[in-house]
Design a binder for these strands. Structure first.
Lengths: 127, 127
DNA sequence: CTGGATCCCTATCGATACTG
DNA sequence: CAGTATCGATAGGGATCCAG
């Protein structure tokens, strides 16, 4: 076999191995089921537990609880407890979370253009 | 922690419910284990099965096979079979795949800046 | 070399029930 | 309202063997 690394310079990707690991790490947090939905909900104004639950279709209370802990541990979401009775808890995106969501927007745009499973090759769509 | 930025960090998110579902869909493909690593490898020049396997640390042949099918089904990767003996198979990013990877770059950049699990509150980093 | 088939273990998920 | 504990079902993933 030929070990020639004469790869055709096709895609202008500037991602290294270093970034690869980081990217994988981030993707495996955000890619978890419900994560992006929850982040989206919180990022767009849902603050209360039940509000988020209502907003993300199909999401159960348990999974919301679990994911909220995940996302909090990953410092993507902040949990603000107000010691009222009963307790009032609000969730917000952290600084990290905000930046993540912003970084996610190209993906959202991408997702909007190409439905997974639909049109294989688009002729000349786009805007 | 930070007490001053307790103001609502109104994020300029322009993602709708529509996009939410799409985004979730994309994230659940790309967020699967090894997916981003494989896409990264292919996107940066790895074409052969064994080359990809070598390039993504910890990746087993089986999972590569499985993911490759996933990614092919999602039209992110193209499989090119050359009927030599033995068969020679090459993988490339599809048009979709290329755009996905480009859309992923902000995430990669984000991932580079914020290590998951590390620095909770940054003093004056960022810019 | 490519990559499917099988076995099996573990993580994850969903539903339900329960607490502060 | 805001969660947690438990349990059973399932899917994800690794190792190995085998076939084209």
């Amino acid at each position: 076999m030929n070990t020639e690394e004469t790869n055709t310079p096709r895609v202008p990707l500037r991602i290294n191995d270093e970034e690869c690991r980081r990217l994988t790490g981030v993707m495996e947090i955000v890619g978890k089921r419900w994560s992006s939905g929850i982040l989206l909900a919180v990022g767009t104004g849902a603050e209360r537990f039940s509000e988020i639950e209502r907003r993300v279709e199909g999401l159960s209370g348990r999974m919301l609880s679990v994911r909220l802990r995940d996302l909090e541990a990953a410092d993507l979401i902040e949990r603000l407890v107000e010691p009222t009775i009963p307790v009032s808890v609000r969730y917000r995106l952290s600084q990290r979370g905000v930046e993540l969501m912003q970084s996610l927007q190209p993906i959202a745009r991408y997702a909007r253009r190409w439905e997974p499973g639909e049109d294989e090759d688009l002729p000349s769509r786009s805007a």
